[in-house]
Design a protein around this nucleic acid. Sequence first.
DNA 1: CAAAATCCATTTGCGTACAAACAATATGGA
DNA 2: TCCATATTGTTTGTACGCAAATGGATTTTG
Lengths: 144, 144
Amino acid sequence: MTAPAATDPIDYKLDDQVGFVMRRANQRHLALFASLIPELTPTQFAALAKLCELGEISQNALGRATAMDAATIKGVVDRLRRKGFVADKPDPTDQRRLLLKPTAAAWAAYDRLLPRAQEITASTLAPLTEGERAVFLLLLRKLT
Amino acid sequence: MTAPAATDPIDYKLDDQVGFVMRRANQRHLALFASLIPELTPTQFAALAKLCELGEISQNALGRATAMDAATIKGVVDRLRRKGFVADKPDPTDQRRLLLKPTAAAWAAYDRLLPRAQEITASTLAPLTEGERAVFLLLLRKLT
DNA sequence: CAAAATCCATTTGCGTACAAACAATATGGA
DNA sequence: TCCATATTGTTTGTACGCAAATGGATTTTG
């Protein structure tokens, strides 16, 4: 019996590995995002959205809410501030914290971009049927 | 009737968007990869694997095979070469091309790391049942 | 054949990502 | 209270990832 078993290492194909396929699916999504919302990156939009969802919040807390570490959220917030979307002030009750708040421009941008964000989600999932989308999101969320 | 329709923009929640959940699932996979194969990044391993799968190949062609653009694959190949995994020579039939080939060390590393790579795939999909894994991979591939 | 279009590799610039180290501040427990 | 510990924000260094521009080689096509 020389036939390879089901788990034979020989059967490894890069193109079948979750990580590789997920990276490619993500690339497609990023491209869709860039074409529908050119003025903001997905990460920047995520931070903007959470900032509007949550209101006043410290920088690190915003990072946790958007799944970015302290170093990453700093750069993102810096760029959002440069675009006029973030107002900050020291937290009076904790000298370490930097309190962030969405500006009026942030709310305007959020309201304006929300429909586009929904389009992006829809286009990303477009290759799937209605039922498949629900299943996919359910399983994807399990991998988190 | 003031009840919001099913597609009401009000219903947008960042945490439910494919892009955001996919980014988090990917973060988890990256962390698993880093802990099981610390010596190589996922991208570097992808390039190494494809290089061994395909044999002699030009740099840009390797980039296409691994879904990396020319600028990205250059950096990855540079780092693989620094680790002694890539031998290169000019293509005699086309002065533009840089022909790449896996070294003996590359084959050794590939053989040694393959089981780990399979473990990474398994751990990433561990939260799913056997049946769910197949469904998930099928749907994920549709999004590519 | 010659011009136009394409392809290859490279570079620069910007934007995530994360590890590791740091100083300043808070907080909990002995 | 005082000290160990944790948290906050920052910086540095490394590694993708892509757009855009460049110079050189090849292919297509008129």
